[in-house]
């Protein structure tokens, strides 16, 4: 139950090769949904994302992007295959352990923002820290710091409904980073935003990347995808590196 940034998992005892453990590692992951007809949303996907990488995942509708995000976010389990998050093999974990892992290692940004409309901006940003073991005294300073970082320090007592779309998404980003995750997962973060606002969010992502955060952004927007340092394309449940 340590507070603060997650400890590096590369431990010489458990990792004799002493190679840096990837933040995310999928090995032959297949996720199929029982039918009829049975649908294989992911077909033998293998992917490794190193700490500090900025990865975009693109693909047409139905290519398995959302399924991949759900698997990466420990919201769904692969039908076949292995998923390691920060070196932890997740397949054998029970729901509470997966919840603990999400709380400590993952931050989420959604297309629909998912802000609590009756709670202030600050309370929204505080939410993940209720569940991830952050000591009470550190929660609010961290939330304020995160809001300052996304440029919303002056809006902390507002209700989300009074903010613009771009501001709301920035609140969501602040919420995701305030708990100091190892990986930030973004699902169509600009899907509800206009171009100018999108650019602001993408700039924010770049800034976070520069600060050392690992980002996986799922998008169908080629412009957004281009900003990533590494681009992955999903087609019909199979992965291919885009140029």
């Amino acid at each position: 139950m340590t507070a603060g940034p997650p400890a590096p998992v590369a431990d010489p005892v458990t990792e004799p090769t002493a190679v840096a453990v990837p933040a995310i590692e999928l090995r032959d992951v297949t996720r199929s949904f029982p039918g009829p007809p049975e649908v294989q949303a992911l077909k033998g996907v293998s992917l490794s994302v190193a700490d500090g990488e900025y990865v975009s995942v693109t693909g047409p509708s139905g290519s398995g992007k959302s399924t991949m995000l759900n698997v990466l976010g420990l919201l769904d389990r692969p039908t076949v295959g292995e998923y390691r998050l920060g070196g932890v093999l997740t397949g054998a974990l029970d729901e509470d352990e997966r919840a603990a892992l999400r709380a400590r290692h993952l931050g989420f940004v959604f297309q629909a923002f998912h802000l609590m409309s009756r709670r202030s901006v600050l309370e929204n940003v505080l939410l993940p820290m209720l569940y991830n073991g952050t000591p009470r005294a550190e929660r609010e300073p961290r939330a304020r710091e995160a809001l300052e970082r996304v440029g919303l320090g002056h809006r902390i007592d507002f209700l989300p409904g009074t903010l613009s779309g771009g501001e709301r998404q920035r609140v969501a980003v602040a919420r995701a980073v305030a708990s100091r995750p190892r990986v930030l997962l973004a699902d169509e973060p600009t899907g509800n935003l206009d171009q100018a606002t999108s650019a602001g969010i993408m700039a924010l992502f770049e800034e976070l990347h520069t600060g050392g955060l690992t980002l996986v952004v799922i998008t169908h927007d080629a412009d957004v995808a281009r900003r990533a340092s590494r681009r992955i394309r999903l087609t019909d449940g199979r992965v291919g590196e885009a140029a």
């Binding site: 139950m1 431990d11 458990t14 932890v88 919840a99 709380a103 209720l130």
Partner: peptide, 29 residues
């Protein structure tokens, strides 16, 4: 904590550190 109640659970694979419950959600919260 979950592990007190769940009896047979898979032994963690080598290279997979155990997951500590991140449970600070106290009564006041």
């Amino acid at each position: 904590p979950a592990r007190l109640r769940r009896s047979p659970r898979p032994v963690p694979t080598p290279g997979s550190p155990p997951v500590a419950p991140a449970d600070r959600f106290r009564l006041t919260d």
